[in-house]
Design a protein around this nucleic acid. Structure first.
Length: 588
DNA sequence: GCCGTTTTCGGCCCGACTGTTTTCAGTCG
C-alpha cells in the first residue's frame, strides 16, 4: 500500500484555498464551506485521499463532488489548479495580514489594491507614513489600531493557548475573586471550551446572572489577575490577564440563565448548527431567548435543558458540543433511535493500569502510591515503571525488575483494600521489539508498551513498529499511542487506521493517557478507535501521588470521544479484566 | 461550496462592537 497524502496536508490545502477565495471576494458561505471541509478532513479517521480515489470522499460531511475532485487533483498531481491561479493573484503575505486583529480579508484586499501592500512589513511602513488614513473607508483610528496590533508583538495567530487544568484553575480563581465583592444575588459559572473540557483553551468565558449587572461588571478591573479591561457595561466585560489570556464575562437576568449558558458554552460550530436546525423549524436561537416565528414570542429559559427542549432535542453533555453528530443524535423523535451515548464517568473507573514509582522516574514508593490509589476508591493499581532502556538514568534493568516484582508482591500482601499488579511500561524499540525478554514479561501482571524514542521515523516504518508491538502476545496495552503533546508537539507520523485494525484484531488495548499535556489518544482518535472495534484503557500515568488524580482529564477526553463505560477496560474488576488479557485468551 | 420536513435551486445562525459612515460594512466570538 503506497503511503497516501496525509489528511492534515489536504486539510491545510483546503484552508489555504478558503483563505485565498476569501481574499478574492467569494461569498462567505463558500469560504465557510472550505473551512468546514478542512476540519472534516483533519478529523477523518480514514485516509481522505484514498476515499477520493474510490469516489467515496463525498460521504464525509461538507465534501461534495467539487471538493472531491480538488482533493483528487492534489493527491495525484500535488497541486490544486484553482489555488495555483489565486496564489499568482495574491502575495502570500496578505494572508498573514488578514490574521491581524481588526483586519480581515476585505481590508487586506483593499490595502493590496489601493496601496500595493503585500506583507506585514509593508503594512507597518504604510501605517507609519500615515498612508492608511487616505484610503476610502479607513481612517486615522484604523491606522492607529494597525500600529497597535503590529506593536503588540504576538501576531494574533499565536495567541497563547492554555492547557485545560490551568484554564479551569484561572477561571475558578477569577470567579472566586468576583464573588468576594459581587452583589448578593450573583451566580457565576465557567462556560466556553473550559466547560466542554477541551484539550486547551484560548479564552476564559464566565457567565453570571444578577439584578445588578453594572456592579458586577465593574469588579473585573479590580481582580489581581487582570491587566486591562477593554470594554465594560451592563452586558458584561471583556478583559485580559497578565498572562495574556482574554477573559469574557457576560451577564444576564436569572430568567435567561439557560440561554446564556447554552450560548456561551458553545462551541461556535455546535451553536451554528443548532441554530440552522432551529431555523428549519421556524425558531431563532440567541443568548437572549428562543424566538418562535409562529407566534412572534421569544421564550427565555432559566435552565439550559429548556433551550434544547424547545428545539425538540435531548440535553447534550457539554463535552459533546462540537458539531460531530451530537445534534442528530439528540433529536427526540429520531426514528433511528441512535440517541446520545451514556457517557463514562469517573465513578466507573475501578483501577489505574499505568503508574510510576521511585524505581524509575516516579517520586513515591509502591506503598505510598498504593495507599493514594486506595483513597481514590480504586480496586487495583498497576505499578508500571519504565524499562531497561529508558535513557534518563533511571532504567530498570531485568534484575531490578525481578526485584521490583517481589517488592510489588510484598506491598500487595501488606496492604488491604486494593490489589497491586506488577507491571512495566516497556519501550517499543525502533524495530518494534521490546526491551525485556519474553520470559521476564511473562512474569508481569500487566504490560504497557510505549514509544519513547525515534519519533521522527517515516510513517510506514513507525506503523510497522507499532503493529509489531501490538502483535506481541504479552503486550496488554499501548501507552500514549500517538506521542502528541498538546500545544507543544505534533503526533508522530503513523497510520492510525492500520494501528486500530491491528489492535482490534489482537485484542490489544489502546490507552487514553490522562496526563493533561498528552490526552493521547485524543478525543477524535479515541472515538475512531472504538468505532474500529478497539477497547480503550484510561490511565493516569502518575509519577507521584498527586497525579493519580489526572485520571479526570482522561475521563474528559473519553467523554469527548463519546465513550461509554463498556468501551473502557478498566471499568471492569481486575478478576474479569485479567481473564480478558490477550495471554488469557484461549486458556480455560 | 454544500445541501434537502423549502430536494437540484436558493437558501445557508445571531448579535455586539468599531469606525467610518448619514445607514452600514467589516470583524469578532
Amino acid at each position: 500500500m503506497a503511503a497516501e497524502l496525509p489528511n492534515s496536508t489536504i486539510a491545510d490545502a483546503l484552508e489555504e484555498l478558503g483563505d485565498l477565495y476569501e481574499l478574492d471576494g467569494a461569498i462567505v458561505h463558500r469560504v465557510l464551506a472550505y473551512r468546514t471541509a478542512a476540519r472534516s478532513v483533519r478529523e477523518s479517521p480514514v485516509s481522505v485521499a484514498a476515499l477520493a480515489r474510490a469516489g467515496k470522499a463525498t460521504q464525509i460531511a461538507g465534501i461534495g463532488a467539487t471538493l472531491q475532485e480538488k482533493i483528487l487533483a492534489l493527491a495525484e498531481t500535488g497541486v490544486i489548479p484553482a489555488a495555483e491561479k489565486l496564489r499568482a493573484k495574491f502575495p502570500p503575505g496578505l494572508i498573514a495580514i488578514t490574521r491581524l486583529p481588526g483586519l480581515g480579508p476585505k481590508r487586506a484586499r483593499l490595502l493590496h489594491s489601493e496601496l500595493g501592500i503585500e506583507d506585514i512589513e509593508q503594512l507597518r511602513a504604510a501605517a507609519l507614513a500615515q498612508k492608511l488614513r487616505d484610503v476610502r473607508g479607513l481612517g486615522p483610528k484604523f491606522e492607529a489600531n494597525v500600529l497597535l496590533a503590529l506593536q503588540d508583538g504576538a501576531p494574533a495567530s499565536s495567541a497563547p493557548r492554555v492547557l485545560l487544568p490551568k484554564a479551569i484553575e484561572l477561571g475558578q480563581a477569577l470567579i472566586v475573586g468576583l464573588r468576594e465583592s459581587a452583589p448578593r444575588d450573583a451566580q457565576l459559572e465557567l462556560a466556553g471550551s473550559a466547560r466542554r473540557l477541551a484539550d486547551s483553551v484560548k479564552d476564559i468565558d464566565i457567565i453570571a446572572t444578577t439584578a445588578e449587572p453594572e456592579a458586577l461588571s465593574g469588579l473585573v478591573a479590580d481582580l489581581e489577575q487582570i491587566e486591562s479591561v477593554s470594554s465594560s457595561g451592563p452586558a458584561g466585560a471583556r478583559a485580559r490577564t497578565h498572562s495574556g489570556i482574554s477573559v469574557d464575562l457576560r451577564i444576564a437576568l436569572p430568567a435567561q440563565h439557560g440561554n446564556l449558558l447554552q450560548h456561551f458554552t458553545g462551541s461556535g460550530r455546535h451553536n451554528a448548527a443548532l441554530r440552522e436546525g432551529a431555523v428549519r423549524r421556524g425558531l431563532h436561537v440567541s443568548e437572549y431567548g428562543v424566538l418562535n416565528d409562529a407566534d412572534g414570542i421569544s421564550r427565555t429559559c432559566a435552565e439550559e435543558r429548556e433551550v434544547y427542549e424547545l428545539l425538540g432535542l435531548a440535553w447534550i453533555e457539554p463535552e459533546l458540543r462540537e458539531d460531530r453528530g451530537e445534534l442528530e443524535a439528540a433529536v427526540l423523535s429520531d426514528p433511528s433511535g441512535a440517541g446520545l451515548p451514556e457517557l463514562i464517568s469517573q465513578q466507573d473507573i475501578r483501577g489505574d493500569l499505568h503508574s510510576h514509582t521511585i524505581a524509575s522516574d516516579g517520586r513515591n514508593t509502591i506503598g505510598e502510591m498504593a495507599k493514594a490509589a486506595r483513597e481514590l476508591g480504586y480496586e487495583y493499581l498497576a505499578i508500571t515503571d519504565h524499562s531497561a532502556s529508558h535513557g534518563f538514568g533511571n532504567d530498570v534493568s531485568p534484575e531490578e525488575l525481578r526485584r521490583q516484582i517481589e517488592r510489588v508482591k510484598e506491598a500487595n500482601s501488606a496492604i488491604e483494600g486494593i490489589e497491586l499488579l506488577a507491571g512495566s511500561e516497556v519501550n517499543i524499540l525502533p524495530d518494534g521489539s521490546l526491551d525485556y525478554e519474553d520470559e521476564l514479561l511473562a512474569q508481569l501482571d500487566w504490560v504497557v508498551a510505549s514509544v519513547h524514542t525515534s519519533f521522527g521515523m517515516a510513517e510506514q516504518a513507525m506503523t510497522e513498529r507499532m503493529i509489531t508491538a501490538i502483535e506481541h502476545p504479552l503486550v496488554d496495552a499501548i501507552g500514549h499511542p500517538t506521542g502528541r503533546m498538546i500545544v507543544r508537539r505534533e503526533p508522530y507520523a503513523v497510520d492510525l487506521e492500520a494501528v486500530f485494525a491491528a489492535a482490534a484484531r489482537t485484542g490489544t488495548l489502546l490507552e487514553i493517557n490522562a496526563n493533561p499535556d498528552r490526552r493521547d489518544l485524543s478525543d477524535v482518535n479515541a472515538r475512531a478507535a472504538v468505532r474500529a472495534g478497539v477497547r480503550i484503557v484510561i490511565d493516569s500515568d502518575a509519577h507521584r501521588i498527586a497525579t493519580l488524580a489526572n485520571m479526570r482529564w482522561g475521563i474528559a477526553t473519553a467523554r469527548r470521544a463519546w465513550l461509554r463505560k463498556e468501551d473502557v477496560a478498566n471499568t471492569l474488576p481486575w478478576a474479569k479484566l485479567r481473564k480478558q488479557r490477550k495471554r488469557g485468551r484461549g486458556k480455560r
